[in-house]
Design a protein around this nucleic acid. Structure first.
Lengths: 234, 234
DNA sequence: CTCACAGGTGTACGCCGTACACCACGAGAA
DNA sequence: TTCTCGTGGTGTACGGCGTACACCTGTGAG
């Protein structure tokens, strides 16, 4: 009799999809070849028939996420709102896959899919008439924000839960790091949730890209400054 | 007889210093407890008498580098040049220890040394009269640049060495990613060294922080925009 | 003289990525 | 029908990692 296969045969796509599911739910560190094999009901070495090694697996995972950042038709034809929309769109993809920035950071060369994303962004900026040189600087300034994330180093230290401990910590900070405390307080409307966790990542991301795009626009309209800036830094 | 010790006894400082030496010369991945033990002529487990675990070792290594970023007296009293100097100074520390950004990124809470650095930067900005709220946004916008590095994702793909291959690659790019190629060309004065490697990281870093600090200054003098920006992003 | 303790040792465990030999099975050629 | 061959899953094993835990040893205080 025609024996139906006991399980779906593996494909590269199935391997990558399952890996992304694991990363989404349990984090990037949970994606080991052994764990991924288990999740697919297969021995770890079987995966190597579909991906060259773990590095290529991560390449492929990243490509899927970067593909999610693709924005065919920005809702505005003007370069600035279009660029803004692209960046915020990339950020939503990143928000859905919080592990992805770590994977992206470890890639060493851009894949074709990544180059497509870069190309789209550059084309948007060039469509506004910004010079290639200025666009180059802007791309560097955007840095990881092109990929929808900002490396917020030391962003979120969770505050102590015990109110007494929190009080003590606040008092100590007020004495040793008064400005940090003041600024942390300013980020939150509720002064009781001052330390850590009080700020809106989406708003900060948007603020940053607005500063950068506004700066780009200013330099575009005052090209003398554009040329002066980089040379003053040697 | 008073036997002189066969070797200097281990101390936490010696352990951390040696670890930094290894990272400086062979990269962060070369710093394993086993390799570090070898380098100190000691069995790996001996290190655990001086550091709690590898994570704490990395904490301590990072603290040493961040301490190198300390700038007691900026050469200008004005907030903008002072902030600029602090950022560029942090960058030189980072340049001497190219592994450090990876170590910094994996820290989950700021150490006191790191908070001192943050405090110094915030104090500098506040000294210019910038509001706590604006300073908060600026700190987020600076992101990792506060620590002297910008995550240049996919920054440097080395171009192929074979001229024929390079020609072919350029031709292919010109067709599929024309804007990328144009912008890459603009980053280099010599059109032959166009693809990759042609740009000056120090200049890009300086450009970026100038855009950010100039943006901060503009918002400081037009506070209506400061308040408008973050709310427009919700 | 004893005793505690700081600091270095040795062994072992459970993870990781992956090299390599092996085998089951279905399709195409003889 | 039989032989062969390639595709894809298996089993075993190696060398690396961080580190838990029991152990030993030399030194200084009581």
């Amino acid at each position: 009799m025609a024996t139906p296969p006991l399980r779906e045969p593996l494909t590269q796509q199935r391997v990558v999809e399952r890996a992304i599911e694991i990363a989404d739910s349990d984090g990037l560190d949970a994606v080991s070849m052994r764990a991924l094999g288990d999740a697919l009901g297969v021995v770890p070495m079987a995966l190597y028939k579909h991906v060259a090694n773990k590095d290529q697996l991560l390449d492929l995972m990243v490509d899927v996420i970067v593909l999610e950042m693709r924005l065919e038709h920005p809702s505005s034809a003007a370069w600035k709102p279009a660029a803004r929309e692209r960046l915020l769109y990339a950020r939503t993809a990143m928000e859905n896959h919080p592990w992805a920035w770590r994977a992206i950071e470890t890639r060493e060369a851009p894949s074709p899919v990544a180059l497509d994303h870069i190309e789209a962004m550059i084309a948007t900026l060039r469509s506004g008439g910004l010079s290639p040189r200025l666009v180059h600087h802007v791309m560097h300034t955007l840095g990881s924000r092109l990929w929808g994330f900002a490396q917020e180093v030391f962003a979120s230290a969770p505050p102590p839960t015990d109110p007494a401990q929190l009080e003590a910590a606040m008092a100590f900070m007020a004495q040793r790091w008064p400005h940090v405390l003041e600024v942390a307080a300013a980020s939150s409307h509720d002064p009781n949730t001052v330390v850590g966790g009080g700020c809106d990542d989406a708003a900060e991301f948007a603020f940053a890209i607005d500063v950068i795009l506004d700066g780009a626009e200013a330099l575009h309209h005052a090209p003398s400054r554009e040329w002066a800036l980089p040379d003053s830094n040697r």
